[in-house]
Nucleic acid binder design. Structure first.
Lengths: 148, 148
DNA sequence: CTTTTTTATATGAAAATGAATACAACTACT
DNA sequence: AGTAGTTGTATTCATTTTCATATAAAAAAG
């Protein structure tokens, strides 16, 4: 496993492209796996984002899932109808909608989370523990840096 | 600039999410900049992918831009109508369409490439040269690894 | 050679997306 | 309090995207 691979042309030395491409490649297989089970990747992203918090407002959830607000707004209404999550008005701010995962959603996401972890392990199986941590912490650093 | 940032919950230790999030954050600003000039990000991605090659088939181009085939097919027809690129049948394989950037497209992309480089420099301004190279080469390694 | 299978692209109908906007509730001033 | 500006969410409608499929050419099999 060498980490030193030289760029060939513009695209291979352009950070935005390297991120987009690696993101795409990493997610692609897993998304197919999810879809084969009848679930949309949007659902997976939303449920995963809700899995480790009590509740989030639509805006907060949107910062995690990276959709456009109208897109998320519609998805969340649909998912509530399917009992995967619960929406209720925020008492502190009556404009806001608090969104929380439901019991059904929790069962589903537990399964998907296990699959996601297994998939990631497979993706990174040739990397040492140190390399894995280095890669992830560089990305976390980039995220923090870009959010100001 | 520390690179060691610890994960908090699932999402912050999940490679696919870290990649998606950092990719989104890096591209977002630049895409807004492009759109403010009246260009779609799809056009930018296609032109950038064509900028440093003579010609690519639709399939080859699609491997770079990461769209769905019908999406690219339609975009490319539209861009030919706008004189940004040229399509012609491949002599070697008559099913294939070879796509090449036009003179007009080349002028446009030269401008956009300069902007992209400037934007990237800004994004990475707090990183040392070593850190930049490490980050990029890890991502290149990941891409190569995932493509088999 | 046929026949079958695979590959490359295009297209049409249906679904998803997003820009613009509406509306209600909150905040900051005066 | 009253007004002006801001923020959070929903909705509309035009555009974009995609699934499914068609078509034609190449490759593989028989």
């Amino acid at each position: 496993m060498t980490l030193m691979i030289k760029p060939i042309d513009f695209i291979d030395d352009y950070l935005a492209y390297l991120l987009a491409r690696s993101s795409h490649l990493v997610s692609e297989q897993f998304h197919r796996q999810i879809q084969a089970q009848g679930w949309s990747t949007n659902y997976w992203r939303i449920l995963a984002s809700l899995s480790d918090v009590e509740a989030l407002t639509l805006t907060q959830l949107n910062q995690r899932v990276l959709f456009k607000q109208p897109t998320l707004s519609k998805l969340v209404v649909k998912m509530e109808a399917e009992q995967l999550l619960v929406r209720h008005k925020d008492d502190a701010d009556k404009r806001s909608v608090k969104i929380a995962i439901s019991a059904t959603g929790r069962t589903l996401v537990a399964d998907l989370l296990a699959q996601a972890k297994a998939h990631e392990a497979k993706v990174l199986e040739d990397y040492s523990e140190e390399q894995q941590q280095l890669l992830k912490s560089m990305l976390r650093g980039l995220v923090v840096h870009l959010q100001e």
